[in-house]
Every structure is written in structure tokens, then in C-alpha cells.
């Protein structure tokens, strides 16, 4: 028995079916506890005041903004090599989720930056790289939408995703390089720099909650894609008969 058995759409549906509800439940419970803890039970930061509460959603969203693309790249690579539709569909299902987390990271970052840095936006290396990431997601989704044949769309967007992951690394490096001269003293307060104990536990809770939420919504979206694909092929069979 190998793990490729799960790449069979029917098998994938059968195995993931009992997982969906518990995942939603676990994500909801952890999110509720994490939110309560981070909003109501943490003190204000001595420098940041109550805006520190924004970081409890900003940090997990930013982590997922990057990691979702990694999930898509792995799924695209596996899809291209092993020719599994489920892999392509997982990559397709992940893209809007990644775009949403990227948007959240950008918006919460801007709202945090205004009171803390006195500006909504700085051309900091990290911020700029996340903004570029957002356009990678947009392009990937636009390609899926533009190619009519699903089989072609799957392969082409997988190629784009893999080329994109290489250039995402290059862009990150280039942007780091670019930010060193334009910005003498970096305003960036590195999130991981120094997290006080009082903030650490709720932050970890929120990170786990966001990841559970991601897995839950990714599963549902992938199952949706598989069903839509099955419905489409049944319709085509019908039309041919």
C-alpha cells in the first residue's frame, strides 16, 4: 500500500470525508480560544499599546501567505510528475486561500503600521515581497480562469507555479538587496525579534488555529473541485451518448 492510493479521486473523497467536520470544529474552537486569549487576556505592550493585538492575526496570516504557495508548488510538482488530478486540484484550491491570507497580512500590517510607524506603508523588503506574492497568486488564478480546457489549465498553471516559486525566491533576494540602500534605518520591527512570554502562548495558539483553518478550507475546496470535475465528465459522457 503506498501513499499514491490517496491520489485516486474516489479514494481521496472517501478518506477525507470524515475529516472535514472535525477539522472545522477544531479550527473553530482553537480560533475562539486564541481570539479570546489574545484580545481579552493579554496586556498591552509597553511600546505598542493595544495595537499589539493586531499581531495575533497578522503573524499567522503572513506565515500562511508564504506557506500556501509552498503547498501549491509541491502539489504542482507532484501533479506534473505523477500526473495526478487531485494534486492539480489541491493547488488550484489553495490559490484563493493564499491570496486571502496575503491580503489579510497586508491590510493588518498597514493598520498596525499607521499608529506605530506613522505611515500605512513603507517600502520595506518584507512588505514589498509579500505584495509581490499577492500578484503571483492573482496571476496563477487568472491563468486557471483563462484556459478553457481543464486538463491544459492544470498543466499550464503547474508550470507557472513552479517557475513562479523560483522567481519568488529571486524576487525576495532582489528586494532585500534593493531595500538596503533606499532605507538607511529599517523601520521594520521583526516579529520574531522578541516576543514577550505573555504574548507567546496566544500567538502560538492563533498560529495553530490558522493552520487548522487552512487545512479545513483547503480540503473542502479540493473536494469541491473534484466534485465539479466529476460532474463535468458525467455531463460530457451524457452529451456523447
Amino acid at each position: 500500500m503506498s501513499i499514491w492510493r490517496y491520489a485516486n479521486p474516489a479514494e481521496f473523497m472517501r478518506i477525507t470525508d470524515p475529516l472535514v467536520a472535525p477539522l472545522w470544529g477544531a479550527a473553530a474552537v482553537l480560533l475562539a480560544v486564541g481570539l479570546w486569549w489574545s484580545v481579552a487576556l493579554t496586556p498591552d505592550d509597553y511600546q505598542q499599546g493595544s495595537t499589539v493585538k493586531i499581531l495575533f492575526i497578522h503573524v499567522p496570516a503572513a506565515m500562511l501567505a508564504i506557506n500556501t504557495y509552498a503547498v501549491m508548488a509541491v502539489a504542482s510538482g507532484v501533479g506534473l510528475i505523477r500526473r495526478h488530478h487531485v494534486s492539480f486540484l489541491v493547488a488550484k484550491a489553495a490559490a484563493p486561500v493564499g491570496a486571502a491570507f496575503t491580503a489579510i497580512a497586508l491590510i493588518t500590517g498597514a493598520v498596525w503600521g499607521q499608529p506605530m510607524w506613522g505611515t500605512w506603508w513603507v517600502w520595506d523588503a518584507r512588505l514589498t515581497a509579500v505584495l509581490i506574492m499577492f500578484f503571483f497568486y492573482l496571476g496563477y488564478m487568472a491563468l486557471w480562469a483563462a484556459v478553457e480546457e481543464p486538463e491544459k489549465a492544470a498543466d499550464l498553471s503547474a508550470v507557472l507555479c513552479l517557475v513562479g516559486v523560483v522567481f519568488a525566491f529571486l524576487s525576495r533576494y532582489a528586494v532585500n538587496f534593493w531595500a538596503t540602500l533606499h532605507q538607511g534605518a529599517s523601520l521594520s520591527v521583526a516579529e520574531g525579534q522578541r516576543v514577550d512570554d505573555a504574548f507567546r502562548t496566544p500567538l502560538y495558539l492563533m498560529i495553530v488555529a490558522f493552520y487548522l483553518f487552512f487545512v479545513a478550507i483547503l480540503l473542502v475546496r479540493a473536494r469541491t473541485e473534484i466534485r465539479a470535475r466529476r460532474a463535468r465528465s458525467l455531463r460530457l459522457q451524457e452529451a456523447r451518448a
Binding site: 484580545v39 499599546g49 492575526i57 489579510i104 493588518t108 493598520v111 499608529p115 483553518f213
Partner: peptide, 16 residues
């Protein structure tokens, strides 16, 4: 800072 915090959580809730 209340407005900023509420705006951040509101935007996140809306998108999710």
C-alpha cells in the same frame, strides 16, 4: 488605538 485594532480584526473577519 482601538479604531486600528477593530479595523484590523474587522477586515480579517470580512475576508475570511
Amino acid at each position: 488605538h482601538a479604531l486600528y485594532v477593530v479595523a484590523a480584526y474587522g477586515a480579517t473577519a470580512a475576508i475570511l
